[in-house]
């Protein structure tokens, strides 16, 4: 699997209800040490209910300037949340020639939505 298999994929709840798109992958460097750094573990998916584009990340940071770009983008991405990886039931199949179409991530029933803010 590669990161872009997941990025921009549509996110569905178990009953098929669409909840947004994967805009980013949350990684945590707490795996076993591999070389110098710990190996990044896929901790969860950052899901935006409105848009696939999240190139500036204002909705996840505490940066409020420059006004009005930062507040506008933050507003545009309001409702962005984090789902933990164990709450993911199915991911898009790579090289899936039998099921062409938009890539889809399906969440487990009863999944939890966490705050996606990054703390420095």
């Amino acid at each position: 699997m590669i990161a872009s298999d997941l990025l921009d994929a549509r996110v569905l709840e178990a009953d098929g209800q669409a909840v947004g798109w994967v805009v980013d992958l949350r990684l945590v460097l707490d795996g076993t040490t591999d070389g110098i750094l710990a190996r990044p573990r896929l901790h969860g998916l950052v899901v935006s209910p409105r848009t696939r584009t999240s190139f500036l990340g204002f909705e996840r940071s505490d940066v409020r300037s420059p006004w009005p770009i930062a507040p506008l983008l933050r507003r545009w991405h309001r409702g962005t949340f984090l789902v933990h990886w164990p709450d993911v039931a199915r991911v898009p199949e790579p090289d899936d020639a039998d099921h062409p179409g938009p890539a889809v991530v399906v969440l487990r029933p009863g999944y939890l939505r966490y705050d996606a803010t990054l703390h420095r």
């Binding site: 500036l56 940071s61 940066v63 300037s65 420059p66 006004w67 770009i69 930062a70 420095r120």
Partner: peptide, 19 residues
């Protein structure tokens, strides 16, 4: 955007007047 990002600029981020 990056001139305002402390992860790149540390304490050298843009001031209010510049922004």
């Amino acid at each position: 955007v990056v001139a305002n990002d402390p992860e790149y600029m540390g304490d050298q981020v843009n001031g209010r007047a510049m922004n």
